[in-house]
């Protein structure tokens, strides 16, 4: 896990009046990160203004009722804190999704766009798909969501390669990343299919509907699955 802090890239590219919401999101995110970095729950307004590259950032945010300025320091209001937590959570979940599942290297810009684009339903689905990860790829904590609290006892990721899955389990195919994709599709194995893993050694044998196939470990590594609840025998 990389410990270095990424360059702050989610800066507003338009005037604050034009896209107020996005500006607010970015400022909340900026404040969250400053607080996280400094280890105190308040920071000086100058820091936030500098972070945002906007001399009036603190004042604008205070007008919106998202932050308060007391004793020359800025802190979140309750509504501001909740909104900031959600943004940070979506951003870091997006980073995990792009880094781990999609195997991308330059995902920061996309994560920044993604965080504004998804609903809380999608956010929970991604969190579940990733197995409620505790940290982003840079090692910083991902704020817990409702879905994480429900699944606190589940520690294994919900989506794993077939090569990391248990024999005898029944799985739903989440996505495929293998050159064999067309061959697998030709016998009916596509995203969303239900498969049963019969054995892993000496070769992988799996069953889809009434078809049994044998494949290499290399192919199994490219089949990503999610365990079907209550189906394991």
């Amino acid at each position: 896990m990389e410990e270095n802090t990424p360059e702050k890239v989610c800066k507003p590219r338009v005037a604050p009046e034009a896209e107020k919401t996005q500006f607010e999101d970015e400022a909340l995110e900026g404040l969250w990160e400053l607080i996280e970095k400094n280890g105190e729950n308040k920071v000086s307004p100058g820091l936030l203004n500098e972070e945002m590259g906007e001399p009036q950032a603190s004042d604008l945010m205070a007008e919106s009722g998202l932050i308060t300025v007391t004793d020359g320091k800025v802190a979140f209001t309750e509504s501001g804190r909740v909104r900031a937590r959600d943004i940070i959570r979506r951003h870091r979940l997006a980073e995990r999704l792009f880094a781990d599942v999609l195997d991308l290297n330059n995902y920061e810009q996309d994560a920044c766009r993604f965080e504004h684009a998804i609903s809380s339903e999608v956010e929970e689905a991604i969190c579940t798909l990733l197995g409620h990860p505790p940290t982003c790829p840079h090692g910083r904590p991902i704020p817990r969501g409702n879905c994480c609290r429900l699944y606190t006892r589940k520690i294994t990721p919900l989506v794993s390669a077939l090569s990391d899955s248990g024999v005898g389990g029944e799985f739903k195919v989440v996505f495929l990343r293998t050159p064999m994709i067309d061959r697998l599709a030709s016998i009916g194995l596509v995203t969303g299919s239900t498969i049963k893993l019969l054995q892993k050694r000496p070769s992988y044998v799996l069953k889809i509907d009434e078809t049994t196939i044998a494949i290499d470990e290399d192919v199994a590594k490219g089949i990503f699955v999610k365990e079907n609840e209550g189906q394991k025998d």
Binding site: M180, V205, T211, T212, I213, A214, I215, D216, V219
Partner: peptide, 9 residues
Amino acid sequence: SEFFLEIPP
């Protein structure tokens, strides 16, 4: 080529 074979009953 990677291994891929259908196993009949």
